Amino acid sequence: MTDHPGDRRSPGRPFDAVLCDVDNVIRHFDSAHLEALERAAGLAEGTTKKVAFSPEVDGPLMLGHITEQEWVAAVAEGLTGLVEDQETAWSLGTALLESPFHADETVVALLRRARTRVPLVLVSNATTGLEADLAAMGLTDLADDVVSSARVGLAKPDPRILQLAAARAGVRPERCLFVDDTEENVEAAAALGMRAVHYREPADLERELAPLFR
């Protein structure tokens, strides 16, 4: 963890560190191209994601056991029978992998402000490409540390990855604010005593961070 002036415990604060998810909180994907390919292939929109993010296909990628290209191959295999040929299946898997993304600047600004007061650790179920993706968004310096599932071999909602993130922040779990868009991850954090927030929109984060600046 990087030392900075905000890394000081205060008995008046509601929490002493922020643990934040990446995808669907900080980073958002544009699925327009994928959805166009699905329509052309006669698939319902979202079919590729349903196959790709099923536990048996997505799990090995998130734990760093397979590469992104091996994941695309697994997605293509899962689409077999749903589309006319393997070329179409591969095109859909590749389009998902290469979906463009952007950072939510409102969320980024809120997190940068929070980091002036407390440590910030990103906790993501992600591929080994996460660090490069953060760099592409200009967010290499956003957090004090990044805990990526593919790097540590643990994935949310496993409480061990949350405990690891708290340790990286130098704070006890019960003194962490945890922000995530997935309910089961939020429930896992709450079970550890964290102040857990089910994120839906930037206002949720802004509301929870407000006590830091009073």
Rank of each mutant, 00 (worst) to 15 (best):
V179F: 08
R168S: 04
D21K: 00
P55M: 02
A135V: 04
P159T: 01
L154K: 08
L177M: 02
A210N: 00
P55H: 01
L37G: 12
G6V: 07
M62F: 00
G193N: 09
L92M: 00
A40H: 10
R13A: 14
E68G: 11
L177E: 13
A166T: 14
H65I: 00
P14K: 02
Q163L: 10
D158K: 12
V25T: 15
V18L: 04
A44F: 00
A114P: 14
E131S: 11
E206H: 13
E208A: 15
T67P: 11
L212A: 04
V107Y: 05
E174H: 15
L96W: 15
D180A: 10
A210H: 09
C176Q: 02
T48G: 13
T88Q: 12
V171D: 06
L162M: 11
R200C: 01
G46M: 08
L43T: 07
T2P: 03
S124L: 05
E105T: 13
W90R: 15
W71T: 04
K49T: 08
A166M: 13
P173H: 13
V107T: 09
A41K: 07
A89E: 01
T116F: 00
P202E: 08
P211C: 14
D141M: 12
E56W: 02
A143E: 06
G64T: 02
G129R: 14
H102D: 09
E56A: 15
A89N: 06
P119R: 08
S54C: 15
A166G: 13
R151V: 01
V147A: 06
S31V: 01
R207S: 11
V57Y: 00
L43D: 11
M194W: 07
A126V: 03
D204P: 07
K156Q: 12
D85E: 05
L92V: 00
L134V: 02
P5W: 07
T80L: 06
K156T: 08
A169G: 08
I66L: 05
A165C: 09
P5Y: 01
E35F: 15
L120N: 07
E70W: 02
T94A: 11
L120W: 09
C176I: 06
K50M: 02
W90P: 00
E38K: 05
M137D: 04
R115Y: 08
L209C: 09
G59D: 06
D144G: 15
T182S: 12
S91N: 13
A52M: 07
R39D: 14
G59V: 05
R13V: 03
A169K: 05
A41H: 09
V152L: 02
P5H: 11
A44S: 01
V147N: 07
A114C: 08
V75G: 01
A166Y: 06
H4N: 00
F178C: 02
L63W: 01
A114F: 14
A135N: 01
P211L: 11
K50G: 04
T47G: 15
G93K: 09
C176D: 03
L134I: 04
T182A: 14
V22K: 06
L134H: 06
S31E: 05
E187F: 02
V179D: 12
S54A: 15
S99L: 02
D141R: 15
V179P: 12
A169D: 04
A32G: 11
D145N: 12
L130H: 01
R27A: 11
R9S: 12
E206V: 03
